[in-house]
């Protein structure tokens, strides 16, 4: 069998295996995405979409101050949630990966998955009881003479919601990533005189970089597009882009204008995702 024949057979074999995911992406991602882009140029008249090519929606949305203030607020909150969640999750992930027995790690992983058994909306509503002025946190603070503090319907409420959403997932991803590190390398670092903190930053973090970045990226994506926390815990003050999409589509059924906001969100996510992945896989300079 010639080399060329073998190559074409290998390609066909690979293609057959790749086909389901390609078809899936075409049907459920590329197709809707193209429709979304096309829809952003449609117009709405008498609550019906008119298929045309008009820049009016883009001009209108991009010229509005409220769009840009929502955009920067959403970007800022999602970035903050990513940093906070990454920093908060890392010690727990580190402990689960290196400091506990395999059995404890299995149980911990199980308990990290348990929150996903219940609806995110239900979990969000349960924060009402905890964060309200008459809630658990303020009741505890009252014992030491503090408060009451307003936490619901503020960016603090939104942030608590974001962390509720992403923290368990992030700990899982980080733990899986850290668990893959060859323990001999850590031991070698210690044997060569590297302290614990230095080992973490010079050995563990670089080796788990891909997993840590992917975890942070997931955190950003989920927070950036979340509607539930900013609406129910943040009280829409101020509103995020996902709330703006809801508002825009509700008022006069302006789905094309909502599509403009959605495309801006997706573009932002694409840019950040590509940058993050490029950074994660960048080879260190030798």
């Amino acid at each position: 069998m010639s080399q060329a024949n073998r190559k074409s057979r290998v390609d066909l074999y690979a293609l057959v295996w790749r086909l389901p995911i390609i078809l899936w992406q075409m049907l459920f991602f590329i197709g809707p995405l193209l429709f979304l882009i096309a829809m952003s140029f449609f117009l709405v008249k008498n609550y019906r979409m008119i298929e045309t090519f008009d820049m009016a929606n883009w001009n209108r949305i991009l010229s509005k101050d409220y769009f840009w203030s929502s955009y920067w607020y959403t970007l800022g909150m999602a970035s903050l949630a990513t940093v906070l969640a990454t920093v908060l999750a890392f010690p727990a992930s580190y402990a689960l990966a290196f400091k506990v027995s395999a059995n404890t790690r299995r149980w911990a992983m199980f308990f990290l998955i348990v929150p996903f058994f219940t609806s995110y909306l239900v979990r969000t509503f349960s924060w009402y009881v905890i964060l309200a002025k008459t809630g658990v946190v303020n009741a505890l603070l009252a014992y030491i003479g503090l408060g009451p503090y307003t936490m619901l319907n503020t960016p603090i409420g939104t942030m608590v919601g974001f962390l509720t959403l992403v923290l368990p997932l992030l700990v899982l991803l980080q733990t899986l990533s850290l668990s893959q590190i060859d323990k001999n390398l850590i031991e070698a670092a210690h044997n060569l005189g590297s302290g614990r903190v230095r080992t973490i930053f010079n050995v563990i973090v670089p080796m788990a970089k891909v997993g840590l970045v992917v975890g942070a990226l997931f955190c950003f994506i989920l927070s950036f597009g979340d509607f539930v926390s900013p609406y129910y815990l943040g009280g829409s003050t101020p509103q995020t882009l996902s709330i703006l999409i809801i508002d825009t589509s509700k008022a006069g059924q302006q789905w094309p204008r909502a599509a403009v906001v959605a495309i801006c969100m997706m573009t932002t996510l694409f840019v950040i995702a590509f940058a993050a992945i490029a950074y994660a896989y960048r080879k260190p300079k030798s």
Binding site: A132, K133, T134, T150, L152, N153, Y231, S236, T237
Partner: peptide
């Protein structure tokens, strides 16, 4: 003065819990 913007459920809850 505005403390938040709510749908039916949120309006209901925020009045009920005194927020």
């Amino acid at each position: 003065q505005a403390g938040g913007f709510f749908d039916y459920g949120g309006t209901f809850n925020s009045l009920k819990n005194g927020e």
